[in-house]
Every structure is written in C-alpha cells, then in structure tokens.
Amino acid sequence: MLEIKGLHVSVAGKEILRGIDLQIGQGEVHAVMGPNGSGKSTLAQVLAGHPAYEVTAGQVLYQGRDLLGLPAEERAREGIFLAFQYPVEIPGVSVAYFLKAGLNATRKHRGLEELDAMEFLDVLRAKLKFLEIDQAMLQRSLNEGFSGGEKKRHEVLQMAVLEPSLAILDETDSGLDIDSLRVVATAVDHLRAPDRSTIIVTHYQRILNYITPDFVHVLMGGQIVRSGGSELAHELEARGYDWVRGEAAAAGSEVKP
C-alpha cells in the first residue's frame, strides 16, 4: 500500500525528516508516536502533499506508484486522507457544501456519478448518527467556532464520507473528553477495513485501547528509532521516551532531542 524509502524533508530550509523508512501493508493500522516537534505532522503533511514541505531525498510509493509527483488534490482523489491536527477555518463555506464538493470531486475522478443534494444527505445521515454529530452542524461555516472536540469529530466524519484507502489521523484523539474519545475512536475502529490502511499519530496509549495497532513506531529527531507491536505503546506510556532515546543512542544512531 505505502512504501517510504529514505525520506528526507525540509521546511523553511530546516531539515525535519532525516531518512524515514516505513512500509504499510493493506488493511494494516500503524501508530506513530514520538515527542513534540519530532516530525510526526511533517510526515503526515508531506504524504498528503502540502506544498510548504520540500522533499530533498527519498521516495514514496503508494499502491506501487510514485506518490511525490502528484499534486495534493490528486492524492486525495486517489484515496489518501489526512485528518488534520489543526483543521483550518473557512468562513462562509458550509460543512455540507464542502463535504459534497470533496466527495463529488473524488467520485468524478473515479468515474462515478456525482451525487445531488438529496443523495448526498442520504449518505451522510447514518454517518452523522454514528459520530453523534447534530445535523445542524452541516449548515455551519467550516470549523468556524467549532470546539476542539467538534473539529476532530468533523475530521472523522469527512473520513467516513470519503472512504479513503490510506487514512492518516494526526492527533485526532487530542483535545477530546472521555465520551468524545470513545465515540471518535470507536468510529475509527469501525472504519477499519481490509482495503484500508491507517496511520494513527498519537501521544497517548488510550486511543489504542479502542483500535489495536498492528505496528507502533517511535519517531524522534526526524527518524524512526524503534518499531514494535502494540505492546510498545504500553511500554512508552509507562516509561516515557527517555529509555528509547538511550537505547537508540547506544545502538549508534544519532538522535537529537
């Protein structure tokens, strides 16, 4: 599904990712953890094609094809979805309008019939219910005045509507209260499918109680310094990052804080 080889990325002239190697198979769930500023969001953004991030070396294959040459909207239509850590506000553009535009652009790309307003609402209704989102939200301006939790729910709603092949969730669990966490995490787990791979960027083990990852990776100083199974997340929760840092240093890889 996704193959990242020796990926180096700079932003504003500063190197952030310094040689990432990662393979994600179809249907797998990978958790990416790591201290603040280690480059997790950078990895997420660069996979989604944010123009501010410059790839200086390396390769990314998505479904066997070169990903990095594609513009962001093509990647999206090809099934890459990013739930943003900080979803941006767009005044005057309603949630419903935005969602429908995205869905129809994607459907068109795939040679499917575009949905009209009624059909679209039908698609939406069940998903709103599942995520416990009030239908009134559809008429609000995109992310404008949304609470932290509403923003995150709304990101997952978009994922549910767009049905991606590769979903990247950047701290979708941050800023959620206990009930919201349950709703959002259950929804994400529910969206797990044999033809859908998921990358969950998180600081906390708790979301992984709902979604058991196949792999856990630790990103530090722009490199993956340790990978393991779901037990690694528990270990990190218990011991913090210092021991990984120590071990990595001992193993000779140069890890900056």
């Binding site: 123009p51 005044p91 005057g92 553009v93 935005f98 535009a101 994607t106």
Partner: peptide
C-alpha cells in the same frame, strides 16, 4: 491545502473560499 486535501482543485478552492467570503 485543506480543500485540496479533500480532492477539491485549487481553482475550485479559491472560488469556494471567495464565495464564502461573499
């Protein structure tokens, strides 16, 4: 970028944002 990440072309995104503004 947010719009484009959802599959909306840059042209349509600009037009959408401007329409929202109005």
């Amino acid at each position: 970028f947010y719009c484009r990440q959802r599959g909306i072309s840059a042209e349509d995104a600009v037009s959408m944002i401007v329409n929202g503004f109005c």
